[in-house]
Computed example of a mutant assay.
Amino acid sequence: MFPTASTGATQTLSAGLLVVGMAATVGIALGFEHIGGYIPCMLCLEQRTPYYIGVPLMILALLASALKAPPLITRGLLLAGGALMLYGMALGIYHAGVEWKWWAGPADCGAGSAGPNTGGNLLDQLNAVVPPSCSEAAGRFLGLSFAGWNALASALWAYVAIRAAFKR
């Protein structure tokens, strides 16, 4: 009834969507940090790593698909991107569980106290900044913390990547 796209076109579109979607997801997190003033905890920063690796990987997948590289290369890159997003989803679920007190978080991810601020130089000011505890959500929107929203976004991007990798 409707014309279907070829596998190559589907993979090219999917890789392009993944580049934009993954970059936008991590861009929003960076916006909340640098524009909104939210200081990320250790787990928040760790959840960005799959995106920092995934965006360039999906750019490679987009190029491989657009340049008609062997399908195994494009599929492999998309599958690797999907695996990264599954890892990101697991991190988001873990962090959200820590925030909801369902399980304990890492021992080195808690609010601490800063030493006395004796000088006025930049290094002293940086030492005075204490990252927030991983067990406290910076905020919630529609009942989900940033970690919860990241878990959903990662699940979406994992689905897109894996579906495109196995598209016949």
Rank of each mutant, 00 (worst) to 15 (best):
G112W: 05
A83K: 02
F166S: 11
F166T: 10
P50N: 08
A83L: 15
L84W: 02
L60F: 14
S113V: 05
L122G: 06
G27L: 06
L17C: 01
L86E: 01
R163V: 00
A161Y: 12
G36T: 04
K68N: 15
I39N: 10
A66H: 11
G139W: 14
H95E: 12
N127T: 15
S154L: 00
A80N: 08
R48W: 12
S14C: 06
A61G: 09
L91Y: 07
A9V: 09
M42Q: 12
A96F: 09
T118W: 06
G120Y: 14
A66T: 12
G110K: 14
L18D: 15
L63H: 15
G92E: 06
A151H: 07
A29C: 07
G81I: 06
Q125G: 07
V130L: 14
T25P: 00
A61C: 07
Y94C: 00
T25H: 11
T4I: 11
L156T: 04
V55P: 00
Y94M: 06
I162Y: 13
F32R: 15
S135K: 05
L43I: 12
W103M: 05
F32C: 02
A107K: 15
M1N: 11
W100D: 15
R163H: 06
C41K: 05
W102I: 04
A111S: 08
L77N: 04
L156W: 00
P50V: 10
G105V: 12
G82K: 09
A69Y: 10
S6T: 15
P70W: 13
F141C: 08
E46H: 05
F32I: 08
G37M: 07
K167H: 09
A5G: 02
N117R: 14
F2I: 03
H95Y: 05
P131I: 10
I162S: 08
T25K: 00
A104K: 11
M22G: 03
K167W: 14
Q47F: 00
R75S: 09
F2N: 03
A153R: 00
F2K: 13
V26Q: 09
G21F: 06
V55A: 04
K68D: 15
C41Y: 10
Y52Q: 05
A83P: 03
G16L: 08
C134L: 07
T74K: 13
G97Y: 06
L78C: 09
G8H: 15
L45R: 11
A69G: 03
L57F: 05
M85G: 04
W100Q: 14
I93G: 00
F2P: 02
A104E: 09
A164I: 09
L13M: 11
G16V: 10
T49H: 09
Y94R: 07
D124I: 01
A151I: 08
L60Q: 02
C109Q: 11
T7N: 10
G112C: 03
A151D: 06
H95F: 04
A24K: 03
A104N: 08
C109M: 01
M1K: 03
W157L: 10
S154T: 01
R140V: 04
T4P: 03
G16R: 11
L43G: 11
G115S: 12
N127S: 13
T4K: 15
L13R: 01
I53N: 01
S154I: 00
Y52F: 13
L122Y: 13
V129D: 13
W102E: 13
P3T: 10
L123P: 01
G36D: 02
A107E: 12
A66I: 00
G92R: 05
A107C: 02
Q125E: 13
G119N: 09
C109T: 07
G115A: 15
L43Q: 12
C109V: 02
